[in-house]
Amino acid sequence: MEHPLLVSSSPHLHCGMSTRHIMRDVIIALVPALIASVWLFGPRALAVELVCVAAAMAAEYLSRIVMKRPHTVGDLSCIVTGLLLAFNLPSTIPLWQAAFGAVVAIVVAKQMFGGLGQNFVNPALVGRIVLIGSFPAEMGNWETPLAWLGGVDATTTATPLAQLKENGDALFDPLEMLLGIRGGCLGETCIIALVIGGIYLMARHIIRPLIPITYIATVFVLTWILGENPVAHVLSGGLMIGAIFMATDYATCPINRGGKFVYAIGCGLLTVLIRVYGSLPEGVSFAIVIMNILTPLIEKVVRPRVFGSGKAVAK
């Protein structure tokens, strides 16, 4: 035989799905929200998104060179991080601040811990939290949606959550909330676009409904019990984008289903506690980051039952 035979361990077949495919699907799922952000906040939103993605890609590329590791820009995960960070910023943020956030997300939260899959907190959320801490004024400057089309007097507005916090019950129009016509980060407001993306991810088996549904249901039930307006809480702030795109981040959520369930309940609980009792109007980012940190612990405690055993695998 002219070619030597390859010998390798079974299986000799692969499903064909790669990391790059997964990230590409996540990017596709973010496109509806991207379109909505440009519709709501104008070209300025697109500029923030482009700056975040470019900065994230550059940071990924350069940090791999510095670390003398193989390049990973091709797995597209840095684009996902850049986009998600942009979606969590107000459209008015100075572009250099947006770029700074993206660099922090990629370099500090991701690459310093070994890159994709090794980070213990969601990089985009770390970027956002660092920006909130560093530039609180710019991070709380909410542009009125559709103001860029003209015809609106006020150019800045308060978010529904801030209104909820101040006035108890906000002026609340469910249809406008679904379309995203309210103050907020540029990618978090349009619920319809986010849900379309989520359904796409579930249909493509990139994520399972367990975390988003448990997270949202927990927030709904708890706010209802606490006498808040549960519908307003579910539709406002970053809950949808957090539950669908951030809490489901592979690297930072528990790997088995029981763990995912506990984790999602924890996210919901912390979100409500911060929103209702905390001094901040919004708690999704902090809730998810805290649960990210608890993930290894959850994985230790909640383990799947091995086939043919009544007890958990190990303690």
Partner: peptide, 19 residues
Amino acid sequence: ATTCIRCGRCVDACPMHLL
């Protein structure tokens, strides 16, 4: 092989429910 992204597909696929 590239780095593990902890997607959990192997966990879901295991018929013996191992990790």
